[in-house]
Amino acid sequence: MLDSADDYVKTFLERDYVLAREPAVALYVAERLGRPLLVEGPAGVGKTELAKTLAAVTARPFFRLQCYEGLDESRALYEWEYTKQLLYTQILREKIGEVLEGAEDLSAAVRRLNERGTAFFSEDFLLPRPVLQALLSDVPAVLLIDEIDRADEEFEAFLLEVLADFQVTIPEIGPLAARHRPTVILTSNGTRQLSDALRRRCLFLYVDFPNREMERQVLARRVPELDVAMAARVVKYVERVRALDLRKTPGISETVDWAATLVLLHARSLSGEVLKASLCALLKDRGDQERALHEVVP
């Protein structure tokens, strides 16, 4: 855990992540308060990268849960290893026979098995998924719950216990509390409204597209081969493109890709031909490309 928001900015910069002041403050406060951080913003502004870089700079284990429609607890939290349970039942057949030896009737045998039944529903047969892995980690971990807005509402509700108390309740075992409280970062592209209950349990950070100066810094770090004047032109052009009503507005990652493409093409200016050849790296929709070519003057 770093000592101030400025430390986050510095250490992130060492990993080529240009961290603005507001996210730096958010990370610092979230880690100090031990609260999950909900990061919302358009796609491609570096939300996922934020969590990854945090894990890297603090040298902590990183667990990622990619959300999608239909995601349930067996993929997010845990699953019983049925095959291992069956295998052990076969291997321990003789032992089970010993346990049941002398049982007067069926109900007595069931009672005896029940007394030892928990052996097959213990942590030994639990297959932990990312959320449980983060909770049971021997050292504090970073847990990224990516694109939570893609998951169903039921899954959001299921996460509430984890986010509030950093524990999960497994019916067969009972509550399992985190060994070390992980830093939890949830990301959302805002494609649907998240529930109030989930928002209440998190600190809320909105990350928007960066301003010109910051995007220029990102390019200088990520694509150092691009000269300063060209980087300024790229950033200005991208800013104008973002002002259009596009199907997919380009994020920072697309700007970096486009800048790298321009370097590969040895482009010295943003002429029409260069744009035609390289815009595929910036805009991922044909209609968007045509609009940008016709409506944005470099």
């Binding site: 101030s4 928001a5 002041r21 507001e22 403050v25 958010a26 610092y28 406060v29 100090r32 308060l33 919302e40 805002g190 109030d196 928002r199 209440r200 600190l203 809320f204 950070l205 909105y206």
Partner: peptide
């Protein structure tokens, strides 16, 4: 957690982070 005396921008960022829940 803030420095003393707190910087106004920092104070706003921290309180906005904690007290708001949506954009």
């Amino acid at each position: 957690l803030l420095d003393d005396p707190p910087d106004r921008e920092m104070l706003r960022d921290v309180l906005r982070l904690v007290l708001t829940r949506a954009r």
